[in-house]
Write a protein that binds this DNA or RNA. Structure first.
Length: 278
DNA sequence: AATTGTACCTGTCAGC
DNA sequence: TGCTGACAGGTACAAT
């Protein structure tokens, strides 16, 4: 589910509520989601209890909750994960797998219908033991992500454009929705090999990556089924989508029927006229 | 080394 | 009203 804009929206909604709060109790209902320390709910709860949140960050699609003095609770929401700050008494739902009780009397809950979410508890010096974080590509909304940076990332690769965008080692945080929207805006066919892109096309791709992800953040994410922010609020970027999930409908730019294919095992929607393979 | 397939789960929706 | 199969914002791992 959540891609960079959704995870960033969750981060922003949680940050003011968690900063300087202390965890008073941890309830674990599904230990298998704890990857480090592997399935160990007892150690997980023991280490977290009594610790205070000192920073709430994001890297790609990972949320990084920093605790004093040097622990990091790393959470990946995968497809259907939700992190919710609960202020009023709410019954524990069927798919609530973790509850972090806070010293303000409120709770942080992790909820995940499909149970794909991943949770790690590591010390700061060990963040790189999380393979996905260690190999993560550049952060696309940072100032460091220049056109040159994208060109460097493309260098030596022969992937098709859609697969390239979905590969977290190439660029961080892009998933199936934003990949389709980025390629449409850039006018690039999803099956185009990245090593055949001209300079002007690389620049269009770079601009579209920045523009579509920023637009997603500005609209507080895309809520199609499950995604909500830390307050349970939906985003609105689903109203701005041009091609994602719109196969069979006319292209908003030229009216040609949007086609559907598979790239890297994922359903892909694109306009065969605006996104020529060339 | 790079690519493709499969596994992990539950829920929803279309078609019969 | 079932039942079945396809599909869903993702990635880790095995197989090729």
């Amino acid at each position: 589910m959540p891609e960079l804009p959704e995870v960033e929206t969750v981060r922003r909604s949680l940050e003011p509520n968690l900063l300087n709060k202390t965890i008073t109790e941890v309830k674990v209902f599904l230990p298998k989601l704890i990857k480090i320390p592997s399935g160990d709910a007892e150690a997980f709860g023991r280490i977290l209890t009594g610790r205070k949140f000192k920073a709430i960050k994001r890297r790609g699609k990972y949320l990084l909750l920093y605790l004093e003095p040097d622990w990091v609770l790393v959470i990946h929401l995968r497809m259907t994960g939700r992190l919710l700050y609960i202020e009023k008494p709410v019954p524990v739902e069927k798919h609530t797998h973790f509850i972090f009780c806070l010293d303000d009397g409120n709770e942080l809950r992790f909820h995940d219908v499909r149970q794909f979410g991943l949770i790690y508890l590591v010390q700061e010096k060990d963040l790189e033991t999380i393979e996905g974080l260690k190999t993560m590509g550049p952060e696309p909304l940072s100032e460091d992500f220049t056109l040159e940076c994208l060109k460097n990332s493309i260098k030596g690769k022969k992937q098709r454009a859609k697969v390239f965008l979905l590969d977290q080692r190439c660029v961080a945080g892009i998933g199936n929705i934003y990949a389709d929207e980025i390629l449409f805006q850039a006018g690039i066919h999803p099956d185009r090999r990245v090593d055949t892109l001209r300079d002007d096309e690389k620049e269009a791709l770079w601009r579209a990556i920045k523009d579509r992800l920023q637009a997603g953040v500005d609209h507080r994410g895309t809520s199609i089924k499950d995604y909500v922010d830390g307050f349970g609020q939906a985003g609105s970027f689903q109203n701005q989508l041009q091609v994602y999930g719109k196969y069979g409908e006319p292209c908003p730019r030229c009216g040609t029927i949007i086609q559907r294919t598979k790239s890297g095992g994922r359903t892909t929607s694109f306009c065969p006229r605006c996104q020529k393979i060339r």
